[in-house]
Structure formats: C-alpha cells, structure tokens
C-alpha cells in the first residue's frame, strides 16, 4: 500500500482544451464571448440585438448550445451569418472539447471577427467550464429576482460582465435594481453591469459599445 501525490485539477483536461481553443481563436483574430444565464432570461434575444448592433462593423458567427433541438439556430437564420448548433445530449453545459470540434467549421466560414457562444440555459454548471472565450457574460432578468447572485454565486464570480435584462418589465415585479447590483458586486467587485431591455432597446447601445471596446482592447 502506498500514497501517490497527484495535485491535479479535476478539470485539467478541459482547461488544457480551453487554452488550445483560445490560442486558435486569437491566432485568427476572433474575439469570443460566452453567454451564461438561466433558461428564459433572454440570451437569444441578446444575441439577436448584438448581431444587429455589430453587423456592418464586423463579421459575426454564433455557436448555439442546447440540450436538444435547433430552435435558436432557426431564429438566427434571418441574419445570414454562420450559426452552428451544438446539442449536448444530456449534458447541462458546453465544454471545451465540444467547442474544439466546432472550430474547423468556424474557420471554414471566411473572415470572422466576433464569435458569440450561447451556452446551455443553466446558471450553475456552465460557470465551471472555460471554453476558450475572451470574456464570460452573465445574464439575469428582472423577473428572476434580485437575490440570484447570492443564491447562485459561481456564474457571477466567473464573469466579467453582467447584463440585467428585461428592464421594461421591472414595474410588474418586486425586483430591486440597487439590491441586485449590490448583491452581484459582493460576489465579484469587478463585474461591469449593464441594464438592458431587448424589447425597448434600452441599454443595448451601451452593451454594443462595451463589446466594441473589449474587442479593440484584446486585439
């Protein structure tokens, strides 16, 4: 009987593949964002507004992650940009391995400057898996409640941006915006928070400007 010291990260393989993806994406000059939220917080609507805001300035591609079906892919067909659906089967998150296998497709789509990865709708698991993105963006909506950062901290902890979405509905809820922001900043004091509404368009210009800045900064 003997002890063997391992000191290895459980997700070492995923971290290694994510670094591989990041290297390949940067080599091609592609800036990548990974959108994470619970189901129904408006991720796909944010993707639509982002495409509308950036189209013309840069070439965009989208990877859609869902457990099954390609409804999001179909929703984005109208933009005439490269969109690829990854179905994760029973898995509740995308991982770096799945993204790695999508890169040959992506690199076959002509020039791409900006890649949006819409993760599987889930506030918990996607936060643990680096995909090789430049930034993680958390989305929460006012209908979900201002206590979400406290109850599900990992998504807020691992993200650089937080969109508080569906602000047009705030009067119909007991959502307290100040409290939500305070809660999120307690988890991660460096979070950049933007209030958005995909219905009224409020805050979308700020979000687009932030993404343009981030892409310029990382280039």
């Amino acid at each position: 009987m003997h002890d063997v010291i391992l000191n290895e990260k459980v997700l070492a393989k995923n971290i290694e593949l994510a670094e591989h993806n990041r290297g390949k994406l940067r080599e091609k000059g592609i800036f990548t964002i990974n959108l994470i939220s619970s189901p129904g917080s408006g991720k796909t609507s944010i993707v639509e507004r982002t495409i509308e805001g950036l189209q013309g300035q840069m070439n965009i591609a989208v990877i859609e992650g869902d457990i099954q079906a390609d409804l999001d892919l179909q929703r984005l067909m109208k933009f005439n940009i490269p969109v690829r659906q990854i179905n994760t089967g029973r898995s509740c998150h995308l991982d770096a391995h799945m993204v790695k296998h999508t890169l040959p497709w992506l690199f076959d789509q002509g020039t791409v400057d900006f890649l949006i990865i819409e993760n599987v709708g889930n506030m918990v698991c996607p936060a643990e898996y680096d995909l090789g993105e430049d930034i993680k963006v958390a989305i929460m909506s006012v209908t979900e409640g201002d206590d979400k950062p406290i109850k599900y901290p990992s998504m807020f902890d691992s993200s650089q941006f937080l969109l508080i979405n569906k602000t047009d509905l705030i009067d119909y809820t007991n959502f307290n915006m100040d409290k939500a922001k305070t809660n999120a900043l307690k988890i991660n004091p460096h979070l950049k928070i933007i209030e958005t509404s995909c219905t009224s368009g409020s805050g979308i210009n700020d979000w687009i400007a932030a993404m343009t800045d981030e892409k310029t900064r990382k280039a």
Binding site: D3, V4, N7, E8, V10
Partner: peptide, 12 residues
C-alpha cells in the same frame, strides 16, 4: 474556495 483538485491517492 474555487479549488476542484485531486490531491492524492492510496493504492496497492
């Protein structure tokens, strides 16, 4: 508090 590591194993 973000650790998710395999530290060691005891084997025959």
């Amino acid at each position: 508090g973000r650790e998710l590591d395999i530290v060691s194993m005891e084997v025959d």
